[in-house]
Amino acid sequence: MTSIRLAETPLLTYVLRRADDALVLGHRLSEWCGKAPLMEEEMALANMGLDLIGQARALYTYAGEVEAKGHDEDALAYLRDERAYRNLLLVEQPNGDFALTMVRQLLYAAFADPYWRAMMASRDATLAAIAAKAEKETAYHLRHSAEWVVRLGDGTAESHARIVRALEKLWPFTGELFETDDVEREMIAAGIAVDPAALRDTWRGTVSAVLARATLTMPEDGWMQSGGRGGRHSEHLGHLLAELQSMQRTIPGATW
C-alpha cells in the first residue's frame, strides 16, 4: 500500500513524536522475545514492550483524532515511511547485547518518567490522561533497567566492560532528549507540552546516581547526534519499519 501523507500541525507532530518513540522502543524490546538471558527476564522485557506498545496505541489513536482524516492507529504506524517517523534516534538503536538494551532503557526511562509526570499537568486532557498511565509504567522501567545496570556495572569484568561500551555507544544520542524546536516551543507555550530542557538536571541526577552505584563514571558530553524528530534517522530505522510494516504493505487495504 502506498504510504499516507499527513498535513502535520504542531499538535499532530508533537503527538506523533511521542507515539513513534513508544512504538519503536516497544518494537525493539519485542525483538528480545525468546532470546533473554534468563527466562525470568523474558517476562520483564515483554512487559516493558507491552507497556510501550500500549502507550503508542493510545497516542496514535489520539493523533488520528487530532488529524481528523480517518487514520487509525494502524494507518499511522504501518503506512508512514521512515522519513515521516519522528522518534528519537536513541530508541531506534539496535538491541545489541543485554547491556546495551538495559542502558538504552535506562537513558530513555530516566527522561520519560519525569517527562510524563510533568505532562500529567498538560492542558490537553487526553495527553494528561495518557501521561498518568505512562508515568507509572515508565517508573517501573526505570527501576528495572537501573537495577540491571547496577548489577552489570558492578558484576564481572566482562559485564563491566560491556556496560562501559554500551554507555559510550549510546551517550551521543542523549542530547536529542532535551532538544526543542518550533513545534515543541509552540506546544510548551500553549501549556500542552513541558519543556524537556527543564528536565535535564533531573535526568542527569537520576543517571549519575545509577552509574555511581554501578561503579561507572558519567561519560563526558561530546558531539550529540540529532535528526530523529525531523525524520532524519540512522540506517537502522528503515529495517525496523520494513519488518514492522511488511504485512500491511504486502496485502494492502486488508482488515487484520
Binding site: 522475545c33 527466562m39 523474558e42 517476562m43 515483554a46 506498545i53 503508542a56 496514535y60 504501518y78 500491511q248
Partner: peptide, 26 residues
C-alpha cells in the same frame, strides 16, 4: 511473527501470548 504482526492490536496480543508461554514454562 511478533515483529511482523499486521496490526498493533495483534502485535500486543501475540507478544502477551508468547510471554504467557514463557510464564507457563516457568
Amino acid at each position: 511473527w511478533i515483529t511482523r504482526a499486521p496490526s498493533l492490536r495483534r502485535k500486543a496480543a501475540l507478544l502477551a501470548k508468547v510471554q504467557d508461554e514463557c510464564g507457563h514454562g516457568l
